[in-house]
């Protein structure tokens, strides 16, 4: 299971006694159902990464709580694994070894590990590249490796911090389609951070619009369009208009 709940979370940086504290997030509450895809949409600096870092267990909220199936997140682990914008692949490991890293950490026996690696190489379409090193791959392929590496540990919640922002427009669009395909084959609870309205509509069941700093939840929009989503569909266009209005307000 993987029910993610963020309950009145506030995060402050800096010394609370002094003047130079930064309130990155203020009283954020949201819920992501099991196997549902949630996009957090907001301008840069509104605290999206901060929220994800806490969900990944790297940082603790100043107040409030983040839970998975009712258990508070206290430290990083494979249950709530994260995918970074810059991939963060281990450059000294091959594609297959990168994908197998988390499985090795879980002490999976080697024959099961090999089987899981093969399965996930197939899932992200990297057959034939198992022995390559990350520096020999394009940006899109590196992000596929990162996705396979994260899915291989079978996380309860998958966190993604602007995973396609480093790619060029064409690759980004292709990877978004790819992610939809992968997610449909292997449903997961996903919390994805983005500042792209299109990305949010293309991917998510639920879009959470954030305000500017300090980040608060401004609106929660449910999207029930069937996937893959057609950018020319009237409902897609009206959603886009609605979201643009919400995000634009913030200037």
């Amino acid at each position: 299971m993987g029910h993610l709940a963020v309950k009145s979370v506030t995060k402050m940086y800096g010394n609370p006694a002094s003047d130079n504290t930064v309130v990155a997030l203020q009283d954020v509450t949201l819920e992501i159902e099991h196997n549902s895809f949630c996009a957090i949409l907001g301008h840069s600096g509104c605290g999206k990464t901060t929220l994800l870092n806490m969900a990944a267990g790297f940082e603790q909220p100043t107040s409030g709580q983040i839970t998975i199936d009712g258990r508070a997140i206290t430290k990083p682990g494979w249950q709530n694994t994260i995918i970074f914008q810059e991939y963060a692949l281990f450059p000294w490991l091959t594609v297959a070894q990168n994908i197998g890293f988390g499985l090795e950490m879980k002490s999976l026996p080697s024959h099961k590990r090999a089987e899981a690696i093969r399965l996930h190489v197939d899932l992200v379409g990297l057959q034939g590249f198992e022995g390559r090193f990350p520096h020999q791959l394009s940006g899109g392929m590196r992000q596929r490796v990162a996705i396979a590496r994260a899915l291989a540990v079978r996380p309860e919640v998958l966190l993604m911090d602007e995973p396609f922002a480093a790619l060029d427009a064409q690759n980004r669009s292709a990877m978004q389609d790819e992610l939809v395909r992968i997610w449909q084959r292997e449903p997961k609870t996903v919390m994805l951070v983005t500042h792209s309205i299109d990305e949010a509509i293309k991917l998510a069941d639920q879009v959470i619009v954030m305000t500017r700093r300090p980040g608060r939840v401004k609106a929660i929009i449910d999207i029930s369009l069937p996937r893959p989503r057609d950018e020319d569909d009237a409902r897609y266009l009206s959603l886009k208009k609605q979201l643009r209005g919400l995000v634009h307000d913030e200037f």
Partner: peptide
């Protein structure tokens, strides 16, 4: 790189593994 260490922890690496399998290698 901080994100390499974070990625390893997020994939379930123990602190010992982080040191020997990631920090030393990097």
């Amino acid at each position: 790189e901080r994100n390499l260490v974070r990625a390893a922890r997020s994939l379930g690496a123990s602190e010992y593994s982080v040191l020997t399998r990631v920090v030393l290698q990097a």
